[in-house]
Protein backbone atom coordinates (compact mmCIF):
# COMPACT_ATOMS: atom_id res chain seq x y z
CA UNK A 1 0.00 0.00 0.00
CA UNK A 2 1.30 3.45 -0.88
CA UNK A 3 0.23 7.02 -0.32
CA UNK A 4 1.57 10.13 -2.03
CA UNK A 5 2.27 13.08 0.26
CA UNK A 6 3.26 16.37 -1.37
CA UNK A 7 4.39 14.49 -4.48
CA UNK A 8 6.45 11.90 -2.65
CA UNK A 9 5.36 8.29 -2.30
CA UNK A 10 5.33 6.70 1.15
CA UNK A 11 4.66 3.22 2.44
CA UNK A 12 1.39 2.71 4.32
CA UNK A 13 1.70 0.16 7.09
CA UNK A 14 1.30 -0.02 10.81
CA UNK A 15 -1.58 0.09 13.26
CA UNK A 16 -4.89 0.54 11.39
CA UNK A 17 -6.03 2.87 14.19
CA UNK A 18 -3.58 5.52 12.97
CA UNK A 19 -5.48 8.52 11.67
CA UNK A 20 -4.17 10.33 8.61
CA UNK A 21 -3.31 13.20 10.97
CA UNK A 22 -1.19 11.03 13.27
CA UNK A 23 0.44 9.36 10.26
CA UNK A 24 1.50 12.76 8.89
CA UNK A 25 2.72 14.12 12.21
CA UNK A 26 4.16 11.09 13.99
CA UNK A 27 5.26 8.76 11.19
CA UNK A 28 6.37 11.30 8.57
CA UNK A 29 7.21 14.16 10.96
CA UNK A 30 5.20 16.57 8.81
CA UNK A 31 4.15 18.62 11.81
CA UNK A 32 2.73 21.56 9.89
CA UNK A 33 -0.69 19.89 10.08
CA UNK A 34 -1.99 20.52 13.59
CA UNK A 35 -4.03 18.48 16.05
CA UNK A 36 -6.56 20.76 17.69
CA UNK A 37 -9.74 19.03 18.86
CA UNK A 38 -9.12 15.65 17.17
CA UNK A 39 -12.90 15.38 16.62
CA UNK A 40 -13.51 17.21 13.33
CA UNK A 41 -14.73 20.41 14.89
CA UNK A 42 -11.83 22.87 14.70
CA UNK A 43 -10.30 22.32 11.24
CA UNK A 44 -6.67 22.69 12.39
CA UNK A 45 -5.91 19.32 10.77
CA UNK A 46 -7.32 20.25 7.33
CA UNK A 47 -5.39 18.73 4.41
CA UNK A 48 -6.20 18.22 0.73
CA UNK A 49 -6.93 14.67 -0.43
CA UNK A 50 -6.93 14.51 -4.23
CA UNK A 51 -7.63 18.25 -4.09
CA UNK A 52 -10.56 18.05 -1.66
CA UNK A 53 -10.24 19.49 1.84
CA UNK A 54 -10.99 17.11 4.70
CA UNK A 55 -10.32 16.79 8.43
CA UNK A 56 -7.31 14.46 8.61
CA UNK A 57 -8.21 13.56 12.22
CA UNK A 58 -11.42 11.82 11.14
CA UNK A 59 -10.02 9.42 8.60
CA UNK A 60 -7.71 6.42 8.89
CA UNK A 61 -4.39 6.51 7.04
CA UNK A 62 -4.96 2.93 5.90
CA UNK A 63 -8.06 4.08 3.98
CA UNK A 64 -5.94 6.27 1.69
CA UNK A 65 -4.11 3.68 -0.38
CA UNK A 66 -3.35 5.35 -3.73
CA UNK A 67 -4.49 8.81 -2.66
CA UNK A 68 -2.53 12.01 -3.17
CA UNK A 69 -2.35 14.24 -0.09
CA UNK A 70 -1.25 17.87 0.02
CA UNK A 71 -0.33 19.37 3.39
CA UNK A 72 0.72 22.91 4.26
CA UNK A 73 4.33 21.84 3.57
CA UNK A 74 3.30 21.02 0.01
CA UNK A 75 1.61 24.34 -0.72
CA UNK A 76 4.72 26.48 -0.42
CA UNK A 77 7.97 26.98 1.42
CA UNK A 78 9.70 29.78 3.27
CA UNK A 79 11.53 30.79 0.09
CA UNK A 80 8.56 30.27 -2.18
CA UNK A 81 5.28 30.78 -0.30
CA UNK A 82 1.90 30.33 -2.00
CA UNK A 83 -0.27 33.37 -2.73
CA UNK A 84 -2.43 32.63 0.32
CA UNK A 85 0.59 32.10 2.57
CA UNK A 86 1.96 35.49 1.50
CA UNK A 87 -1.43 37.15 2.05
CA UNK A 88 -1.69 35.71 5.59
CA UNK A 89 1.72 37.21 6.40
CA UNK A 90 0.90 40.57 4.83
CA UNK A 91 -2.45 40.83 6.61
CA UNK A 92 -1.22 39.37 9.91
CA UNK A 93 -3.89 36.68 9.59
CA UNK A 94 -3.07 34.95 12.87
CA UNK A 95 -1.92 35.42 16.42
CA UNK A 96 -0.52 32.17 17.80
CA UNK A 97 -0.47 30.52 14.37
CA UNK A 98 -1.78 27.12 15.46
CA UNK A 99 -4.86 27.18 13.21
CA UNK A 100 -3.02 28.82 10.29
CA UNK A 101 -1.92 25.70 8.33
CA UNK A 102 -5.50 24.43 8.42
CA UNK A 103 -6.87 27.84 7.49
CA UNK A 104 -4.56 28.07 4.47
CA UNK A 105 -5.19 24.51 3.26
CA UNK A 106 -8.90 25.12 3.66
CA UNK A 107 -8.83 28.45 1.83
CA UNK A 108 -6.78 26.91 -0.99
CA UNK A 109 -9.55 24.37 -1.61
CA UNK A 110 -12.24 27.01 -1.12
CA UNK A 111 -10.89 28.97 -4.11
CA UNK A 112 -11.29 25.90 -6.31
CA UNK A 113 -14.82 25.28 -4.98
CA UNK A 114 -15.94 28.82 -5.79
CA UNK A 115 -14.28 28.57 -9.19
CA UNK A 116 -16.26 25.36 -9.81
CA UNK A 117 -19.48 27.22 -8.94
CA UNK A 118 -20.31 25.13 -5.88
CA UNK A 119 -22.97 26.89 -3.79
CA UNK A 120 -22.74 27.32 -0.01
CA UNK A 121 -25.33 27.92 2.68
CA UNK A 122 -24.68 31.66 2.18
CA UNK A 123 -25.45 31.55 -1.56
CA UNK A 124 -28.76 33.15 -2.51
CA UNK A 125 -29.06 30.98 -5.60
CA UNK A 126 -28.04 27.33 -5.88
CA UNK A 127 -27.27 27.80 -9.56
CA UNK A 128 -25.37 30.61 -11.21
CA UNK A 129 -22.11 32.38 -10.50
CA UNK A 130 -20.81 32.64 -6.92
CA UNK A 131 -19.47 35.96 -5.71
CA UNK A 132 -16.51 35.83 -3.35
CA UNK A 133 -18.25 38.10 -0.85
CA UNK A 134 -17.26 38.24 2.80
CA UNK A 135 -20.51 36.40 3.67
CA UNK A 136 -19.53 33.59 1.31
CA UNK A 137 -15.97 33.39 2.66
CA UNK A 138 -17.14 33.43 6.29
CA UNK A 139 -19.59 30.57 5.66
CA UNK A 140 -17.15 28.53 3.56
CA UNK A 141 -14.38 28.92 6.15
CA UNK A 142 -16.66 28.08 9.09
CA UNK A 143 -14.95 24.70 9.49
CA UNK A 144 -11.76 26.43 10.64
CA UNK A 145 -11.83 27.92 14.10
CA UNK A 146 -9.31 30.46 15.44
CA UNK A 147 -9.21 30.60 19.21
CA UNK A 148 -7.19 33.83 19.12
CA UNK A 149 -10.05 35.40 17.20
CA UNK A 150 -7.91 36.68 14.33
CA UNK A 151 -10.88 36.31 12.00
CA UNK A 152 -10.86 39.92 10.75
CA UNK A 153 -7.34 39.59 9.35
CA UNK A 154 -7.89 36.02 8.13
CA UNK A 155 -10.89 37.30 6.19
CA UNK A 156 -8.85 40.20 4.79
CA UNK A 157 -6.08 37.85 3.63
CA UNK A 158 -8.43 35.37 1.96
CA UNK A 159 -10.61 38.17 0.58
CA UNK A 160 -7.66 39.79 -1.16
CA UNK A 161 -6.59 36.54 -2.83
CA UNK A 162 -10.19 35.72 -3.78
CA UNK A 163 -10.58 39.13 -5.40
CA UNK A 164 -7.37 38.68 -7.38
CA UNK A 165 -7.96 35.10 -8.43
CA UNK A 166 -11.71 34.83 -8.79
CA UNK A 167 -12.96 38.13 -10.19
Amino acid sequence: MAITINGQEHDLSGDPRTTLLDYLRDDLRLTGTKKGCDHGQCGACTVLVNGMRINSCLTLAVMHDGDSITTIEGLGSLGSPSTLQKAFVEHDGYQCGFCTPGQICSATAMMAEIRAGWPSDASEELEGPIGATSEEIRERMSGNLCRCGAYANILAAIGEVAEEELS
Binding site: G40, G43, T46, M52, R53, I54, N55, L58, T59, S106, A109, M110, E113, P119, S120, D121, S123, R140, S142, G143
Partner: peptide, 12 residues
Protein backbone atom coordinates in the same frame (compact mmCIF):
# COMPACT_ATOMS: atom_id res chain seq x y z
CA UNK B 1 -26.94 19.35 3.21
CA UNK B 2 -25.28 22.77 2.87
CA UNK B 3 -26.92 23.91 6.13
CA UNK B 4 -25.13 21.23 8.12
CA UNK B 5 -21.58 20.40 9.18
CA UNK B 6 -18.61 22.01 7.39
CA UNK B 7 -17.15 21.71 3.90
CA UNK B 8 -14.40 19.41 5.23
CA UNK B 9 -16.96 17.04 6.77
CA UNK B 10 -19.36 17.17 3.81
CA UNK B 11 -16.46 16.26 1.51
CA UNK B 12 -16.01 13.01 3.42
Amino acid sequence: ILAGATQQLRNK
